[in-house]
Computed example of a mutant assay.
Amino acid sequence: MEKQLCDLLVRLILLTWGFGAGVAGLDRYSSLGETVTLPCARFQKYQNSFIYWIFNQRSESSALASDGKITVKQPERAARLEVLPDSSLRIHHLHTEDAGQYECQQYVNGQLYEGGTPFVLTLLTITADPGKDLKRGTTLALQCTLLCNGGIADCSSAPDNVKLTWVDDEGTALQGDRFKITPYRTHSTLSLELQKSDHDRRWRCNLTEEGAVKASYSYTTTLTDTPVLIATASATTIALLIVLILVVAFCFWKRRRSDSDNHIQVEELTKESVSEIPAQVTGGAGENYSSIQFNNEGRGPERRQAPAEESNGVIYSAIK
């Protein structure tokens, strides 16, 4: 009886003072769009027991899961929640509405047996002004913000050792006269004038606690005037490539045609028949003659036509 009364008093204190802010080990950080897993630390296996997940936000409580089953009524949010075999709660694709306090409770035979350690989930996000139609020369203001308990104004109880920093892709802090950074404890603003090199550039904000990065969120600037130049360059490259392909194809066709003409000439030459006719003996007893007859009838039309008397001929040779 005394244990249950103590658990009730602890929960009332947590709700009154902002869900345990400032208590060591309760804070958990992540970013919009990420996935986070919240453990049910004191879970033990008993017969007739189940785990009950509770979500507190802005002094309102709601049940998320009971006995391993998601009980949220909103279909879109229910699809992002998952209870793991060890009764941990996993939240996919974090939204603004997910910032708040989470607590798992274990019931045995219908009675509260153990209350888990509550987690205060704080999310990191970036907003841009202006948020669209960015061009070279535009003055852009990026604000990196903590989302606590479902809103920005509810982060007044955020730990003092939390710090927001702007870094490049290598994790180095942004420096130089070009960047104007205005830091606060719960948000930080980066102002700059956009240049051509800022097209498709990522601006990253890190949340650190005692120097260790706990969460990170990035924003990519897409300039509306730079892609036109890129498209023009791409069109020129494609046109040159097409011309090159046509030149190579023409040269290949020309070579094939030349090879084909040579092949035809060789075939026409092979049509010329060479035949041997019986020898007519016109010499003395010791001489034999053999004749070779040439037929030029198969030659191509491009050859010079020989006189009729030269079309067919007989050459005699003496064989001794």
Results as ranks from 00 to 15, higher is better:
Thr186Gly: 12
Ala173Glu: 13
Tyr217Thr: 10
Ser157Gln: 14
Thr182Phe: 12
Asp198Lys: 07
Asn206Glu: 10
Thr165Gly: 05
Leu192Met: 12
Ala212Trp: 10
Leu164Arg: 03
Trp166Gln: 03
Asp169Tyr: 00
His199Val: 00
Thr222Cys: 09
Gln195Ala: 14
Ser218Ile: 06
Asp160Arg: 09
Trp166Leu: 08
Val162Cys: 08
Asp168Met: 11
Arg201Met: 15
Ala215His: 05
Ser188Gln: 04
Ala158Gln: 10
Glu193Tyr: 04
Gly176Asn: 06
Phe179Asn: 05
Gln195Glu: 06
Asp177Phe: 13
Thr186Phe: 00
Asp168Phe: 10
Val167Trp: 06
Asp177Val: 15
Leu164Met: 04
Phe179Arg: 05
Leu164Thr: 00
Ser157Trp: 07
Leu164Ala: 02
Thr145Val: 01
Asp160Leu: 09
Leu147Asn: 12
Ala173His: 04
Ser157Lys: 15
Glu210Ile: 07
Thr145Gln: 15
Leu223Tyr: 03
Thr186Glu: 15
Tyr184Trp: 10
Leu174Thr: 01
Ser218Gln: 13
Gly150Asp: 08
Ser216Tyr: 02
Ala212Gly: 06
Leu164Ile: 03
Tyr184Gln: 13
Leu146Phe: 00
Gly211Glu: 01
Gln143Val: 08
Arg201Val: 15
Leu146Asn: 10
Thr189Met: 11
Arg178Pro: 03
Arg202Gln: 13
Ser191Trp: 02
Ile181Arg: 00
Asn161Gln: 09
Thr208Ser: 14
Ser156Thr: 13
Arg204Thr: 15
Asn149Tyr: 13
Glu209Pro: 00
Gln175Asn: 05
Phe179Met: 07
Asp200Ile: 01
Trp203Gly: 05
Leu192Asp: 04
His187Leu: 02
Lys163Trp: 02
Tyr184Gly: 15
Ala215Pro: 03
Ser157Val: 00
Pro159Glu: 11
Ser216Met: 02
Asp177Ala: 15
Leu147Cys: 06
Thr208Asn: 06
Cys148Lys: 07
Lys214Gln: 14
Thr222Leu: 12
Pro159Asn: 09
Tyr219Met: 07
Gly171Leu: 00
Lys180Glu: 09
Gln195Leu: 15
Asp198Gly: 09
Thr221Asn: 11
Thr145Ser: 13
Gln143Glu: 13
Gly150Tyr: 09
Ala215Lys: 00
Asp198Leu: 10
Asp177Cys: 09
Thr221Ser: 14
Asp200Met: 11
His199Ala: 07
Asp169Phe: 00
Lys163Tyr: 03
Arg204Lys: 10
Asp198Pro: 07
Thr222Pro: 05
Asp160Trp: 02
Cys144Arg: 10
Val162Leu: 14
Cys148Gly: 03
Ser156Ala: 14
Cys205Glu: 02
Glu210Lys: 11
Gln143His: 09
Asp198Phe: 05
Ile152Cys: 02
Gln195Lys: 14
Leu207Arg: 02
Thr208Glu: 06
Trp203Lys: 02
Glu210Pro: 01
Asp168Ala: 12
Ala153Pro: 00
